Simulated assay, not measured.
Amino acid sequence: MNTEETVTSRRALLAGVGAVGAVTVLAACGSDDPAGSGTSGQGSQDPTEPAEEPGDSTGGGGEVIGKVADVPVGGGALFRSAEMVVTQPTEGQFHGFRAVCTHQGCPIASVDSGTINCSCHGSKFALDSGEPKNGPATRPLTAREVTVKGDDIVLA
């Protein structure tokens, strides 16, 4: 075998290996989504929001996260195990929010002085809407539907 044949054979081998590698990478990047969108029907997701899980707020999970007595009127309470903050701006009116600041994903630190507070950078959010009242956050907290069943606060 002469040198030219050897070089050609090496080139052919490397091209074949490269083609197989490219096909493998493309297949791994493929989607099982029949629509071909690659997102399984979901839009782009806020990086501070977790992926939907069974029993999440849109799935009607019914998870008890706390007691009505724990949420003062005109204030709120953190339920860290559920990563939630629940507020009661006026008597009998409950709002649930994900207890993660929309600025840089820090955990919500407290509910006092009429706002939901992040200690990392000083953002403060409204009790009734989760809208930022004081930055640097510019987006509201992620709302999570809660209901009251007897004495329990339930993630709807």
Rank of each mutant, 00 (worst) to 15 (best):
S9C: 03
S9L: 14
S9Y: 02
R10T: 04
R10A: 07
R11N: 09
A12D: 08
L13N: 00
L14F: 10
A15D: 09
A15Y: 09
A15W: 06
G16W: 13
G16T: 04
V17F: 12
G18V: 01
A19Q: 00
A19T: 00
V20A: 15
V20Y: 12
A22R: 13
A22P: 01
A22N: 05
A22K: 08
V23T: 10
V23S: 11
T24V: 10
T24R: 12
L26D: 00
L26G: 09
A27G: 13
A27V: 01
A27C: 10
A28W: 06
C29H: 08
G30W: 04
G30L: 04
S31W: 04
D32M: 08
D32K: 13
D32C: 11
D32S: 14
D33H: 13
D33G: 12
P34M: 09
G36N: 14
G36W: 12
G36R: 14
S37D: 03
G38L: 03
G38Q: 10
G38I: 10
G38S: 09
G38F: 14
T39E: 02
T39M: 05
S40Y: 13
G41H: 09
Q42V: 03
G43P: 00
S44G: 04
Q45I: 10
D46N: 15
P47S: 08
P47N: 08
T48H: 14
T48W: 15
T48C: 04
E49I: 05
E49Q: 13
E49G: 06
P50L: 11
A51E: 03
E52M: 12
E53M: 10
E53R: 08
P54N: 00
P54L: 03
G55L: 00
G55Q: 04
